[in-house]
């Protein structure tokens, strides 16, 4: 099981803040998972194609080609604007 989370403008665009999914067969890294999510519909396809998005695995920022494992918490979000 993967815990997926989406924040801020991305959360609004997708209409969902978090969800749990089974690790899809054959998916073992972020590009694979992103493609799997993008296959849902045109909204997901374009929203996750935004190259400015940051991705965190288990609450640590990672590179876009990072490996994923069953049980991971994976979050996508736009550049941060706190402070």
């Amino acid at each position: 099981m993967l815990q997926l989370r989406y924040f801020a403008s991305l959360r609004e665009l997708l209409g969902i803040g978090d969800e749990q999914v089974e690790l899809p067969d054959g998916v073992h890294d972020l590009p694979g998972l992103t493609r799997w999510l993008q296959a849902r519909d045109a909204t997901w396809e374009s929203a996750l194609a935004d190259g400015r998005l940051h991705i965190a695995i288990n609450q640590e920022i990672v590179k876009a080609d990072a490996a994923i494992r069953d049980g991971d918490e994976i979050a996508w979000f736009p550049p941060v604007t706190g402070g």
């Binding site: 403008s9 550049p79 604007t81 706190g82």
Partner: peptide, 27 residues
């Protein structure tokens, strides 16, 4: 600490204007 917070800590600002809302873009 404040400079790094602004670029690394996961906070997002959303503004309510008189006629709409918008997410603040990173400076």
């Amino acid at each position: 600490m404040i400079d790094t917070l602004k670029t690394e800590a996961p906070f997002w600002k959303k503004e309510t204007l008189s006629d709409r809302t918008r997410w603040v873009e990173q400076e």
